[in-house]
Design a binder for these strands. Sequence first.
DNA 1: CTTGCCCACTCGTCTATACGAGTATGCGTG
DNA 2: CACGCATACTCGTATAGACGAGTGGGCAAG
Lengths: 261, 261
Amino acid sequence: MASLPSILGGLDPTSDRAVFRQIADQLREAIDRGRFKEGEKLPSEAELVEHYGVSRMTVRNSFSILQGEGLVHAEHGRGVFVRPRPPVRRLASDRFARRHREQGKSAFIVEADAAGSHPTVDSLEVKEEKAGQDISTRLGSVRRVLARRRRYLLDGRPVEFATSYLPLDIARGTQIAEPNPGPGGIYARLEELGHQLDHFEEEIRARMPSPSEVKTLQLASGVPVIHLIRTAFDTSGRAVEVCDTVMAADAYVLSYQLPAT
Amino acid sequence: MASLPSILGGLDPTSDRAVFRQIADQLREAIDRGRFKEGEKLPSEAELVEHYGVSRMTVRNSFSILQGEGLVHAEHGRGVFVRPRPPVRRLASDRFARRHREQGKSAFIVEADAAGSHPTVDSLEVKEEKAGQDISTRLGSVRRVLARRRRYLLDGRPVEFATSYLPLDIARGTQIAEPNPGPGGIYARLEELGHQLDHFEEEIRARMPSPSEVKTLQLASGVPVIHLIRTAFDTSGRAVEVCDTVMAADAYVLSYQLPAT
DNA sequence: CTTGCCCACTCGTCTATACGAGTATGCGTG
DNA sequence: CACGCATACTCGTATAGACGAGTGGGCAAG
């Protein structure tokens, strides 16, 4: 690494911009310009204290800004690093097309394999439970539902946590209530049970994660989540499934095709 | 407000959870339980210092956690407040349907009026410029483009900043290059120019805002942005427009309909 | 009564210090 | 050579204090 003064400038005492913001600005710009590359270690707190002639808390304050922006992450005992942009998983709007369902594996496994990643599914939980207000409304005022919870990982990194809710009168006693729903997933089973799927409705929000989501998805600070709620409708117009998904936003790009008609 | 000890508990010195995290946990839980309501003022730093018997920086540290989660926001000289969840704007996937285009006003104005909000559009800029790498690729290797920039506000609050890029050979000299593109917007003009629209492609990402986005959208800390890139294709398969939109995530829910075929 | 100022309270910024805990390296011992 | 420990360096947590600046209410002067 080049010497600090050659990368970072000095402070402007006449500026009304707070010192810790000025430091954050300089570090951010250096990162943007590629003076610090992805995964690279930034100068230590002590070095910056020395360089700028400020106290350590001021430097830490600067780092905390960059952390909130998702630009860097600190590792206890090692240093502060430029956060690498992880490879993203693209979700195409045709990902539930029937033709993708004919094969054996789940959509997640197939896609990940194709992308050369190592996919895993864990924390599988299948149980009957009371539907929350929102789920109940979306499914048409059902009281109890079958909930299928699972977490998806790519190369060991959790990227998505999803829960499917199905009305008991549809799912109870079927393979949908089993941990392994069989080839083509629960959508294939639903169609076999006579619920020909007609269309899906997806609602998308983005927000900062709750503490429990941070834990489940092992999220770095400064990484939002995408909250997707999908409702599946059969040809009779009935909502047959609601899938509530929370995704690490830095791992996904969602893609949709809209007709212009 | 009830007395502090009745709302907030004490600290657990035996816990290995940091004190400032314990305080943040208690405040978060109190907010979730509704002990502090939306827009309500939290106890001041001094009060919490007194209640917990810790130093002021520790309390501020707790607040900064909650701020990062988007739960609270501080106002200089006034206090720390529970951040109200603003009314959200729903974007339906049929928002570009031709029938919505026949009327005079823009989609944004019509929707906002219907929702009882007061819509504004400002920072209008229309100019020719060099296309960036990404835009150029999406439009099919064009070098220069017409860029239309505008910011949308609801009841005075900025919620969205959008830039439309169009190939010069299509847009130059037409009403599309005027500040006011006329009734139905640029999509109506494109169709009049013989570019019958076929479909749109939308890419969605979520991330923390850059400092300039924080400024433009007046974002509170802990609010991510939704980054949407829409490409419009005409019936010949040509990309005729790319619209790059950055939205305040707390102001939007995106909604899509997908066929199951 | 109105105006304007003062003051108390609030958060914002910054310093200086202390100790704890995780990481990595190198050196000395076996 | 291999192992283990000491040590230096890193960030994490917490204290105590100081001054600045925005807000709002009360009080005094006009």
